[in-house]
Computed example of a mutant assay.
Amino acid sequence: MADVFINYRTGDGNDTAALIDNELSNRFGRDRAFRASKSIPPGSAYPEALLTSLRRSAVLLAVIGADWINFRSKLRAPEDWVRKEILEAFACGIPVVPVLAGRTTERLKKDDLPDELTRLAELQSVRLDTQNAEADLKRLGDLVSEMVPGLYDLEHADAPDPDPGSVSNSAGTVHGTAVQSRDFTGDVGGTVIKGPTGPVHSGHGNIYQNSRHESGGRHYSGDGMTNIEGNHHGDIRHRFGGPVRHEEDER
């Protein structure tokens, strides 16, 4: 179902309508924007297709080209489809947004419009300048997304979830070299800690080895510091730059 109905007059705004359709289709999906020359299959009864799609839409974008107001005679004709689509949107309570195509296209004035369409002159419009097309199209797409909340959800529905195996930075201030990785191979010039049970502390300073089941413990002084608690399987080796002194030997 199309959420956005693009109203335009052939010969005055059809190129702008195609740009809008392309932008909205890329952002929200091809079937979310209705443009008659694209959306009605050959051989279909276009009056029924137009009105059915319009009545199901959430917003109508009325493309106003530089010569739009010069079609006064057509705008007064009951069978003019530009007129008929806008009046149908008013009757159904569908929001209508005038899109001024080009830098010099002026806002509509009530005195230039048939009585049935004077409401168009009271509506806030947006401008789509082809010389600033990228930014203006994005702004228009953002506006449509705000007016039709379902389109925002649709646009973000396919966003990939974060890789459960990815690594995020959880370190604060780091002095020197820090390497953070999930899995790695090769030599690392530093301290590697993988899968420990219990707290592990590696750095400069003294070494404290304490037992939770004994009243005492040992204090080692030397270069480097390792604090190991809990259960460890396998060998634990630490080499210091100088001789190790045991405090209990000095007592």
Score class of each variant (00 low, 15 high):
residue 3 D to K: 10
residue 4 V to I: 14
residue 6 I to D: 04
residue 7 N to D: 14
residue 7 N to R: 06
residue 9 R to V: 14
residue 17 A to C: 06
residue 21 D to C: 08
residue 28 F to G: 05
residue 29 G to S: 10
residue 29 G to F: 13
residue 35 R to I: 11
residue 36 A to H: 08
residue 37 S to D: 15
residue 46 Y to N: 03
residue 47 P to E: 07
residue 47 P to Q: 03
residue 52 T to R: 15
residue 56 R to G: 15
residue 58 A to V: 00
residue 62 A to E: 10
residue 64 I to F: 00
residue 64 I to L: 05
residue 65 G to I: 04
residue 71 F to T: 03
residue 72 R to D: 08
residue 74 K to R: 04
residue 75 L to G: 01
residue 78 P to F: 03
residue 78 P to N: 04
residue 78 P to E: 06
residue 83 R to G: 05
residue 83 R to T: 10
residue 83 R to C: 05
residue 83 R to E: 08
residue 84 K to S: 09
residue 84 K to H: 12
residue 86 I to W: 01
residue 86 I to C: 03
residue 86 I to S: 06
residue 90 F to T: 04
residue 90 F to L: 09
residue 91 A to R: 15
residue 93 G to T: 08
residue 94 I to G: 03
residue 94 I to R: 07
residue 97 V to I: 13
residue 97 V to K: 11
residue 98 P to F: 10
residue 99 V to W: 10
residue 100 L to R: 09
residue 105 T to L: 02
residue 107 R to C: 09
residue 110 K to M: 12
residue 114 P to K: 02
residue 116 E to M: 09
residue 117 L to Q: 07
residue 120 L to V: 03
residue 124 Q to Y: 00
residue 124 Q to G: 03
residue 126 V to E: 09
residue 128 L to K: 00
residue 128 L to N: 00
residue 129 D to M: 00
residue 131 Q to T: 05
residue 133 A to C: 04
residue 134 E to K: 12
residue 135 A to T: 06
residue 137 L to N: 01
residue 143 L to A: 07
residue 144 V to A: 06
residue 150 G to P: 02
residue 153 D to N: 04
residue 157 A to K: 13
residue 161 D to H: 14
residue 170 S to V: 06
residue 174 V to E: 11
residue 176 G to P: 08
residue 180 Q to N: 02
residue 182 R to T: 13
residue 182 R to W: 01
residue 182 R to I: 01
residue 192 V to S: 15
residue 196 P to T: 02
residue 196 P to R: 13
residue 197 T to H: 11
residue 198 G to T: 07
residue 199 P to M: 07
residue 199 P to T: 11
residue 200 V to C: 08
residue 203 G to P: 08
residue 203 G to S: 02
residue 206 N to F: 14
residue 207 I to A: 13
residue 209 Q to C: 04
residue 210 N to I: 11
residue 221 S to Y: 10
residue 225 M to K: 12
residue 225 M to R: 08
residue 232 H to R: 12
residue 232 H to I: 13
residue 236 I to M: 13
residue 237 R to N: 09
residue 239 R to L: 12
residue 242 G to A: 14
residue 247 E to Y: 04
residue 249 D to F: 07
residue 251 R to A: 02
